[in-house]
Amino acid sequence: MVGRPTRGYRVFQVCNTIILTLVVVATLYPLVNIVARSFSGEGYINAGQVNLIPRGFNIKTYKAVLHDSTFWTDYGNTVLYTVVGTAISLVLTTCYAYVLSKRNLRGRTFLVGVAVFTMFFSGGLIPNYLLISGLGMRNTIWSLVLPNAISVFNLLVMKSFFEGMPTELEEAAAIDGLSTYGTLLRIVLPLSKAVIATMTLFYAVSFWNSWFGAFLYLDRPNLFPVTLYLRNLIAGASGTGSVGFTGSDAAQAAANIQSVTIVLTTIPILAVYPFVQRYFVSGVMIGAVKG
């Protein structure tokens, strides 16, 4: 690309910029809108007059939500589940992926098959529920962090990453007297920061956002994660119409409270993202290039 860019290339650049700008606007608008709503007066929200800038500025709702003990209990639960869940998932996924990346492993195809099988087939809702109940894990953190601790997609990404690592490194380590675990811990993992950061992000986001498992396996409100709180809040406001004949109990959750809770719930993920992002890109790419 020496000299003046061709005409076709300039046209492409213009189109590209326009399209990508539109994509950015489409992605960013809902977020900005929610933030604006969270600072707005209830009347303006219901009248649909809040777009990008808050109207009828108020922070009373923030104060109210921040003083709600249920919100903090649930928030704490989410943090706990996310940290424990991510740790367990990372350990298991790394071990499994590392083993699978060894071409001389006997029964490797079978082990990959076992993992891939679960991508396409699952027991279904009720058998899973029976299983979790039978294992006595209902109403414990384990019902959330153990099932699906290994995401097959992440496993395959990691496996490809490990496969791309030069075998000479590990052979050298073996000659210098490192055991298999030593090689993994002292040689391979330090060289895999990119993929580990990516996996951490993937797992953390999925644990942070998940609500269905908690909804299914937890019966006590003091164990609920904040996503469940949020979901209930939103459904409480929008579920009235579809019932048709309602009792008088389905009162409205203020649109304002919803926005505030959404903002507060999203902040941690938003705050972590920029720092992990540079690993994020390289990590996934490295894994993806190898077939």
Binding site: L125, I126, Y129, S133, F215, D219, P221, L228, R231, I234
Partner: peptide, 20 residues
């Protein structure tokens, strides 16, 4: 047994189906 309002019907089906 506390079930969030949002998905009451889903949980009801599951736990009746599971016999618990």
């Amino acid at each position: 047994t506390i079930v969030p309002y949002s998905d009451y019907e889903t949980k009801r089906s599951v736990i009746i189906g599971a016999g618990s």
